[in-house]
Simulated assay, not measured.
Amino acid sequence: MAVIAIMAFLACLTLGGVSMVRATAASWQGGISREVTIQIKPAEGRDMNQALLTARDVALQFVGTIDGQVVDEAATERLLEPWLGTGLDFDELPVPRLVIVTIDENNPPDFAAMAAALQRAVPGAYLDDHRAWVNRLSAMADATTTIGVSIMALVFSAMVLTVVFATRGALSGSRDIVEVLHFVGAEGGFVARQFQNHFLNVALKGAFLGGGLACLFFVIARFWQARFLATPGSDQATALFGKISIGWGAYGGILLTIVIIAALTTLTARLTVMRTIREIDRIRSDPARTDTL
């Protein structure tokens, strides 16, 4: 039961971690894909404020754009404050200015045509549709899912091998009894049910224990993040994993994992017993081996 509990804990922890990372990546991806950015660099004789307004108006002419917002000097200064400090003089420092355009995700505009129109209206304007970041986030989420599925497959494989060895050990200690029962007419299915019922009981206890500990881990992690909010450790964890929380879908996945572990354990025990009984039948049907034994 302890081994099954450990395997269930690792499997459920992996499932919850993958679910959390995918939810965070989807949130980032959704936030990025809802906006495009127009970047305008300072140029000799250019009225930056007028150029920003012109770029915004050109972008909003396209079907699929919802809103446009010019990032003013105060907001730009706040963005650069961690690197350049406060009190920036934009007349002396050639800092690019931004226009953020909100788009309709279900009906995005023609970005190529928009970029060309911006170049004609404001030479040097650069349209960033963030597709590179979206593709990277999608690739990261897919890689995380693949790694998680691989880890769960390894955990299940290790658990199946453990159950096989445990069943064989139990059969070795009771082999004489199994042979007598089978000899006096007990079917293989009857004998197998006795073992599978035992291992089903053990597997359910171990799987629920491991799954419960995994759920408790996520609850404690969420409490820790909320308790130590705005601390360096919490900020780093939030930047890496987002909000340490799993939804009801992940809890449902943990419950399904518990059921799968119990089913795999029961099926493995049954198949192991049936194979042993077939070996007993082969020995009984071979006179030479029976005489030798």
Rank of each mutant, 00 (worst) to 15 (best):
D235V: 01
E92C: 00
I177E: 04
L209K: 06
T162P: 00
S285H: 09
Q119D: 15
L209T: 14
A166W: 08
T102Q: 08
D104Y: 11
S174V: 09
P108M: 08
A112N: 06
A141T: 06
I246C: 04
A153H: 11
I246K: 04
E81K: 01
R136L: 10
F190T: 13
A170W: 08
A121M: 04
F199R: 10
H182E: 14
P94D: 11
S33E: 12
V164W: 09
I246F: 02
P108A: 07
P109C: 02
L216F: 12
V99D: 03
A262E: 02
H182G: 13
L229C: 11
P94I: 04
A26Q: 08
A121V: 07
S27Y: 03
A170F: 08
V180S: 10
D128C: 03
I38V: 09
G242I: 07
M140Q: 09
E179A: 15
A230E: 15
L267D: 14
D57M: 00
A207I: 03
F228G: 08
V184R: 09
R120W: 13
A59D: 02
M114E: 01
T266W: 05
A207S: 07
D91E: 15
I4P: 01
Y126K: 02
S234N: 14
L171F: 05
C12D: 05
L216K: 14
D129W: 03
G17Y: 06
M7P: 05
L80G: 06
I260V: 15
T146A: 15
Q69C: 02
G211V: 01
P42Q: 10
R168V: 04
T86D: 12
E279Y: 13
T76M: 15
A262K: 00
V202K: 09
F62Q: 02
A226Y: 08
F62R: 07
I151C: 08
A23R: 03
Q29W: 05
R34Y: 03
A226C: 04
R34N: 10
R97A: 14
L53N: 14
M1N: 08
E73T: 03
L80D: 13
A116Y: 07
R227Y: 14
A239T: 12
G253L: 02
G16C: 13
M114T: 07
S27R: 09
A170L: 07
T290G: 10
G189K: 11
R227F: 11
Q61Y: 00
S150D: 06
V178C: 08
G253K: 03
M48V: 11
L209N: 03
N106W: 11
G148F: 01
D281E: 15
T266A: 12
P232S: 06
G185D: 04
F190D: 05
